[in-house]
Structures are given as C-alpha cells and as structure tokens.
C-alpha cells in the first residue's frame, strides 16, 4: 500500500484488485463499531465483503463511513444474515464511536452511514445491504455515492422497513433520510433522495387544526411496511434488466378495489444509462422473496452458493 491513513471510529476502507483468477484485497480495514469480513469464494474474479456492526445495530451518534475501491473485479458487499440493520432510538448519551475522532460536520444525535465507492472500468459492485429498521424515535441518515467508470457495473439496493412490527412500531421513527447518488463518467445519472419524516410535534389540537389535518408517516406509507429501491447500471446488469423490463411491460393493470400485496415499478434513467426499480410490500419478507426471485439472473455472475445467501 502506498499510504496507510489512520481511521476514525466507525470507518472502513476496502480496495480490491484482480490477481489472476482471484480477487485480492489490498486494503480491508475497519474500526469499531464496524467490522468487515471477507471469506473466500469459489467463483473466479468475485469477492465478497460482509459488513457487520457490533451488537447488530447502530445507535444515535454512530457515524459509519466506508470507502470502497473496486479494480478489475466484481465485488459484493452484503451483511451476514442479521435480518435488518437496526437503528436504535435517539437519546442523549455517548458511546466510543462518537468520542473518537468524530467528524466535525455531523449532527450529534443522528446516526449516519456513508458508503462511497469507485468502480473501475469493467469492474462491478453489488451493494446489497439488509433493510434498515429504524426503531421508535430513531433518526438515521445514509448516503451511497457511487462513481462508475465506463463499462463499470452497479447493483445498488436500498430498503427500509416500518420498524419493529412485533412491538407495534409502524413508521414511528423520527427521521429516515437516504441519498443514492450515481455518477457515470463524471455525469450524475441518478440522485435518489428519500426523506421519511413525520409531522412536527404539535402541542395542542388547535395548532394541529390551523396546520391542516396532519398526516403521519404511517398515514402516508400504509398499507406497506417495506419500501425498496434498486439502481442498476452497466454491462453486467443488462440480462437481468431485460428480463425485468419484459415482465414489467407485459403487465396490464385493471381497476381493483384494494391494494395488492406487492407493487413494483421500473423506469430507465438518464436515457437508458441505468434503470431504477422501486418496490413495496405488505411484509418485508414479500419484498425479500420478490427480490430473490427477480434478481436470480445474477446467480451466473456471483455463483449459486453466494447468491443463495444474499437474500437468505
């Protein structure tokens, strides 16, 4: 390595390059509460990094930042099956990751998660995290900024659930902000910016009246409890996109009287330089199962065994 920079708390760095038929990590480091693991895969030219957080979740004030570099390889980033990335409630307090070298710009009580990736020509990045589950009153913000070179490929998944349904929490977190920014050869082909935030707390019914009937987050997002966005670009995704597009275009919607269990939509972005897919389901499992089936074409690229684990 040319230079070894010290890492702040919650930071990670990943650089992988191809070395003959295998992929070598020239850099793979992370600091608490982030942990990166890279088991060996059977598939040639494919590597996987499992992203974990200690305790299986993030709390207020955690700031995770991962820098990724993919050169001449196909790299997957995925969680080891934890079910979802849990974001705990915002509360005053402290933990190690906030004390050590916290970047100055960040808001103290918001949990932030930034992934920044550069993908070299002919390489591919599959960013397939667990859905984010924000607990009651949690405030969370994430950014995925991907810079693609010519002929680089990207599969970027971003999904969020309504919360801990078993505890009766449905869309009762305080704020979820997610930005997916994709640049291709220096040109921004997509900025998917999602803000899920309930109405500001009102003190009396009178104020609520004067503000117009208030709509809660739950009002706005029901009946679904999981929303997913998938951004696809580059040569490696063409077959899967063609399949999805064929299925989508052949769909005809007749008037119904009640919402379907699962609903999804597909659209080209930036004159066909990429595609965006959005889906929603009554249960997170509906969306997970749908994704697993719909993206099965990627089995050929990542290997059957690896694929099975991605949406396990």
């Amino acid at each position: 390595m040319a230079q070894v920079k010290s890492l702040h708390a919650g930071q990670g760095r990943i650089t992988c390059v191809s070395h003959g038929p295998s992929v070598v990590f020239t850099e793979l480091s992370a600091t608490y509460p982030l942990k990166l693991l890279s088991p060996k895969l059977a598939q040639d030219a494919v590597a996987i990094v499992y992203v974990l957080s200690y305790g299986g979740g993030l709390i207020n004030g955690d700031h995770v930042k991962i820098d990724v570099n993919v050169k001449d390889a196909t790299m997957l980033m995925s969680p080891i099956h934890e079910g979802s990335t849990k974001v705990f409630k915002t509360r005053p307090g402290d933990r190690p990751s906030t004390r050590l070298g916290q970047p100055a710009h960040t808001t103290p009580n918001v949990t932030t998660y930034v992934t920044e990736a550069t993908v070299a020509p002919g390489s591919a990045l599959f960013l397939l995290p667990d859905p984010v589950t924000c607990f009651r009153a949690a405030a969370y913000s994430q950014t995925q900024r991907i810079t693609l070179s010519r002929d680089a490929s990207l599969v970027l998944l971003d999904w969020v659930t309504s919360g801990r349904k078993s505890l009766g929490e449905e869309w009762v977190f305080s704020r979820y902000h997610s930005l997916n920014e994709v640049f291709l050869e220096g040109h921004c082909i997509a900025r998917d910016i999602m803000l899920l935030e309930g109405p500001p707390q009102v003190k009396t019914a009178e104020i609520a009246q004067s503000q117009g009937s208030s709509r809660t987050l739950q009002d706005r997002l029901k009946p679904y409890s999981c929303y997913a966005t998938l951004i696809l670009s580059g040569p490696l995704v063409q077959d899967v996109v063609a399949q999805l597009d064929k299925l989508y275009q052949s769909t005809t919607v007749f008037k119904t009287t009640s919402p379907a269990r699962m609903v999804w939509a597909l659209s080209p972005i930036s004159e066909g330089k990429g595609y965006i897919l959005r889906a929603a389901g009554l249960e997170t499992e509906d969306v997970r199962n749908w994704l697993r089936e719909s993206l099965q074409g990627f089995e050929d690229i990542v290997g059957v065994d690896t694929y099975l684990k991605l949406f396990a």
């Binding site: 999602m194 899920l196 609903v263």
Partner: peptide, 9 residues
Amino acid sequence: ANTWPLGEI
C-alpha cells in the same frame, strides 16, 4: 427530497 415512495411507485 422525495417524501412519498408509495405515490412515486
């Protein structure tokens, strides 16, 4: 930001 993914879909 977009604030209504259901409407968007």
